[in-house]
Design a binder for these strands. Structure first.
Lengths: 323, 323
DNA sequence: CTGAAAGCGCTTACAG
DNA sequence: CTGAAAGCGCTTACAG
């Protein structure tokens, strides 16, 4: 493997000159830089980032830690984040699963963004988080002890959905999915704010997958007092629920209205183009990239950064009609 | 940031002893190792992997390079691969997009697996590939100049699909998607092998997304000689096509049979549980993990490793009935 | 404008 | 069983 010293010999200069030339140090004469660059190119020299990081403390790499990849949401966020970080001069590497935290801390990337994943043990997470030695923050968390974070105001998002349904005359509004407490809280508060009644039977149990949403509806026992509108926990649950509704013979939106959480492209291509609420995903990436770079630079930052979910109107909500 | 030297001082031993203790070198006395480990633990010592790699040449990290994350197939493969590599003592990091190649080569991970992504310029890819300085191979490619690789026998997979449809009496078999030449070749050869006629109108243009499949069917002009069965390019195209078929009033499988490529869980949860062909994804990960580790260890390996796609029978194929 | 030298945090023969 | 020393491939004051 070819190193800076090899290039130095081949170019007939000292290796510290090679280093500077490679880094476009302005003190190096133009012609010698060209010469060095040509030799490096010719011999397929690749800088050893590990050595660079060890010596200078910079790797220009940022880690993004996810607990899973099965939600298309993450593909979307990763893609956007990668693009934004690139604009700022960083590469992004992804680590999936719990060990991600350790990997990146050990790897000494410049900074690290965690998606606020479903933790089995939040206390343990924050304890480990506080021991991380590199700049980092949690994206999409609702609170982060003594450290910057980006919050998605999910409760407000749910409120916008409930309000929209309420404005369309719905008074019996259900929620599909019970795996995210913050969304259920938002649901409860939204009902209160819109003067509707909370009814625990209106929450259909579902974890997070397409099947969960599908079977939540399949297993639901309809009564004359059943909801006339539902909000789905996330993109997958919502699409599964939609399928089950259609299979059961309900028309969406004329019989049942449905709003999904997460505004992914998939949502508009569902059997019925889904009205959604969710954070603007492009903005999310921009804010995340800016925050991590600010932290790396040691700048003062205001936090939390709050992202407001938006309501995206499509075809899955209709006015309530008494039957 | 705490280093090996800090630990050495605190534990009252030399830092080379600390290094050995941390690496469970058997020459270190049990009691001193315990002491060192306790001190390290107490001060949240984290080994600097960059330094370890620089010094020893090993990072125990393997890179997986993808060109995109939008196909659920990749989430599945990544997850499986991560799990398999972990069993073998490695961590996996993911890099998305073209720069992935450069990032990992610069980063000097121990080894690197490329998904055979859709390249705009294959020649350029192989040129760069051949310059990579670390053990690496391409997963899912059909050929790899002078280097090990894992081939998915896609042609044979397509053949199994065509044969299955043929056995069910279908003689007019279409293919949805024209972005993967190897699959089209397989399709053509399969028709020949089963004694069916090739008809260019039976190939519906579609790139790779759900929408592509959906609109391929929507835009298709049906005639009395239209196919009675289709094979979909990948999971997304197939599901999009299925939706469009159902919307157009075709019953699947009684009017039209459909086989999808890629056996992801999503496929069985489609409106009609989809019969699929595709590589066994668990086996794919096992083989990939074993191959990269063998390459890192410098072992001789037989290549190509060939993965045979399987046919997974579900509900989307029926016998042809003349109308 | 260029180079010699120290140092980043580890590992690893080698000596004892 | 432990330690002193060299070295991995870079960067960066510092001297010239």
């Amino acid at each position: 493997m070819i190193t800076i010293k090899d290039i130095a010999k081949l170019a007939g200069v000292s290796y510290s000159t090679v280093s500077k030339a490679l880094n476009h140090d302005p003190r190096i004469k133009h012609t010698t830089r060209e010469k060095v660059l040509a030799v490096a190119e010719k011999h397929h020299y690749r800088k050893n980032i590990m050595a660079q990081q060890l010596s200078s403390g910079r790797s220009n790499i940022i880690g993004f830690v996810l607990d899973e990849l099965n939600n298309p949401l993450f593909a979307n966020i990763s893609g956007n984040l990668h693009a934004e970080l690139k604009k700022l001069g960083y590469q992004m590497i992804l680590v999936v699963a719990d060990e991600g935290m350790d990997v990146l801390d050990h790897l000494r990337v410049d900074g690290c963004i965690f998606w606020d994943y479903e933790m089995t043990d939040r206390a343990a997470f924050w304890k480990r988080f506080s021991n991380i030695q590199i700049p980092c923050f949690v994206l999409g968390t609702d609170d982060s002890p003594n450290s910057p974070y980006i919050k998605i105001d999910r409760k407000e998002g749910i409120y916008k959905a409930v309000e929209h349904l309420r404005n369309n005359g719905h008074t019996e509004i259900g929620f599909i999915g019970n795996s995210q407490p913050i969304k259920l809280e938002g649901y409860r508060e939204a009902l209160q704010r819109t003067g509707l009644e909370w009814n625990k039977d209106y929450i259909l149990p579902a974890y997070s997958s397409w099947e969960d949403g599908y079977f939540a509806i399949r297993n639901y026992e309809w009564t004359s007092k059943s909801p006339t509108a539902f909000i789905g926990l996330n993109n997958m649950v919502t699409r599964g629920a939609l399928r089950a509704l259609l299979e059961a013979g309900y028309k969406v939106p004329s019989d049942i209205s449905l709003i999904g959480y997460d505004d992914l492209p998939d949502m508009q291509y569902a059997e019925v183009a889904l009205t959604t609420i969710g954070p603007p995903l492009d903005e999310l990436a921009i804010q995340a990239a800016e925050l991590i770079v600010a932290l790396i630079r040691g700048e003062q930052v205001q936090y939390p950064v709050i992202i407001q979910p938006q309501l995206y109107h499509r075809q899955s909500v209709a006015s309530y009609k008494a039957t």
